[in-house]
Design a protein around this nucleic acid. Structure first.
Lengths: 339, 339
DNA sequence: ATAGTCTGTCGAAGCGCTTCGACAGACTTT
DNA sequence: AAAGTCTGTCGAAGCGCTTCGACAGACTAT
């Protein structure tokens, strides 16, 4: 392993000079800099991460806590994770992957050990156990998702309330009067994951304002669960012509089931999904959807953290405005026959 | 930040004693150990990661390189990543998330800086640029996937050749004589990703042995691409009654399209998928499938690395035997009408 | 010319831990 | 009773880097 000292000797300067060349924290003459840089290249020098972390109390690592569950939103999680990793690298940071398994202890461990300089938390619950710890440390953090109480925290998320409103609006505008919402799995609501409840809020209040009827049913993903849920919905509200689907693993099953029942999309029934773009365009009917801006959230989270670590930036809550893209799964409500 | 020295002082022992209590590398009397452990708890001490890494030249971090592309096998990748992170924690390791973006440089950086003690590489190509670097370092590594040349490397993977053979066998046994293979996206083959080619090998050679006809067509995921691919296949081989699907994002579209053409699964047509269990059971028809043992691979990779880091363990290639689970998507070939 | 200001470089201290050799004391063995 | 062996603990060195204060030399303003 090549060390700083060896580079210094090779370049005929002192160790501190090499360090300053590397960090740019003091001015160095052009000739010296070049000599040092050449030595670094020649010797194939890489600064030792541990030593650097010890001396500077900066690890240049951002911790990313992903949910342990692989049952929901997998593509979104993955996309966020990759956006985080990629963005972090462009700022000279690496990413430590933590699973939710350790829970609050992970936060303690990371902040206590100086393993990471900052944290990004995904899958935040409304009243998350980790929040008091975050507030109690001076380590910067960003939540992807919105807890109940955000004071002293930085959060990014899609504005799910507006998303819900937007979906209802779109369907209402097309004349749909009876709308069913295929929600996330019951467990997601029990856990009080913010986004699910906020979407529902948005859906409900806009539905009330616009005078459309709304039926919300949680649904596990998969074909069988969707079949049961759909049967119940059509039983209870036979006149349903609009669907809002939040659980992406229910999308394709729903389309298949509707087809099976002879209900054409979008002629008889309209479907709006809240899902990543890719899912929307790859579905068997190109879906009118509100995209979940996974990449954008990941990138924002990292950039905010970097700013904070550089002494810039403040706590704030950023809600990304939803955008509804009209594709082939929504159309005017069939005239007359709505209940 | 609480330091070792403070713990030592609090417990009335020397710093080295505390260190030995922590590492267990020398025997410590029960009473001293207890006193130290109590002080650690009381003060909320966490060893500083950087200092530890510097002094011991061990970071207790395992690097995981995931593919940058989010276009293929997302659930599998995610499942592996989570299995890796979880398993690593049980052995006292953390996981650093690297994307393929940096390519070989990432390997250089990690080994050079001592950021991680070992690496796990996913999405290995047959002739991967990173392999020479891995061979040239003494840092342990495990590949998830199989390159062309494995000497000096440790690899885990599903035995895709056997998987291909198994799928053909199952269909042949049921009387299917004309089998179509829905492969991965063309780009995957162009990249020479090992698993795709090996599966194909297994399919072809077993098909030859059993005297069944095989038609292989690469296919991008999604409904539209699948529609085109299916049309071509049925055009060329109208008597096709068996399908093997490797691209999981083609599964649901295929089922929808077959239904649409009035071909019932499994009465008229049988479908075998190579995909994670979850996808198989959640599909609109419960799929006969060979599961991709994502968790098992992730766990194995970590455990092998830990063994190597502990001075045990050797280089070897482990191919996990495929298991075909019969579900509702395969049945006897329709009698008489096969071409 | 003198004092004052930059610029570029160096030396040394120290970050918090691990680990090696030393060694005191208790306990065997002859 | 002397020599040898363990066991448990300590002190000190050192891991490779950052950073602070010092300072020589060049330059500017008076």
């Amino acid at each position: 392993m090549v060390t700083l000292a060896e580079v210094a000797q090779h370049a005929g300067v002192s160790a501190s000079t090499v360090s300053y060349v590397l960090s740019g924290k003091r001015s160095i003459s052009a000739t010296t800099r070049q000599r040092v840089e050449q030595s670094i290249r020649l010797l194939g020098y890489h600064p030792n991460a541990g030593a650097r972390a010890l001396a500077s109390s900066r690890s240049n690592i951002i911790a990313l806590m992903v949910p342990l569950r692989t049952d929901m939103y997998v593509p979104v999680m993955m996309e966020i994770a990759i956006a985080v990793a990629t963005t972090a690298r462009t700022h000279g940071y690496d990413v430590l992957l933590l699973t939710g398994e350790e829970g609050p202890d992970a936060v303690r461990r990371v902040t206590g050990s100086g393993l990471a300089d900052a944290m990004i938390l995904m899958d935040v619950e409304l009243d998350d156990e980790r929040l008091p710890l975050l507030r109690g440390t001076d380590q910067p953090s960003v939540l992807i998702g919105l807890p109940a109480e955000t004071t002293g925290l930085t959060c990014v998320d899609l504005d799910f309330r507006a998303t819900g409103a937007l979906c209802v609006e779109h369907l209402a505008m097309l004349g749909h009067r009876d709308i069913a919402v295929i929600g996330e799995a019951p467990a997601v609501y029990e856990r009080h994951t913010g986004f699910a409840e906020r979407t529902l809020d948005g859906l409900r209040s806009r539905a009330r304002e616009l005078g459309v009827r709304l039926l919300h049913r949680p649904c596990e993903g998969g074909y069988d669960a969707m079949a049961v849920t759909l049967a119940r919905i059509l039983d209870e509200r036979p006149g349903t012509t609009g669907f809002v689907v939040q659980n992406e693993s229910a999308v394709e099953p729903l389309l298949a089931l509707l087809r099976q029942r002879g209900r054409a999309v979008p002629e008889d029934v309209s479907v709006v999904a809240v899902c990543p773009e890719q899912v929307a365009v790859q579905a068997s009917v190109r879906l009118t959807s509100v995209a979940i801006p996974a990449q954008e959230m990941g990138r924002y989270a990292v950039e905010h953290l970097v700013a904070k670590l550089d002494g810039r930036g403040t706590d704030e809550v950023v809600l990304i405005a939803p955008e509804l893209t009209v594709r082939a799964s929504t159309g005017p409500a069939p005239s007359g026959r709505t209940s």
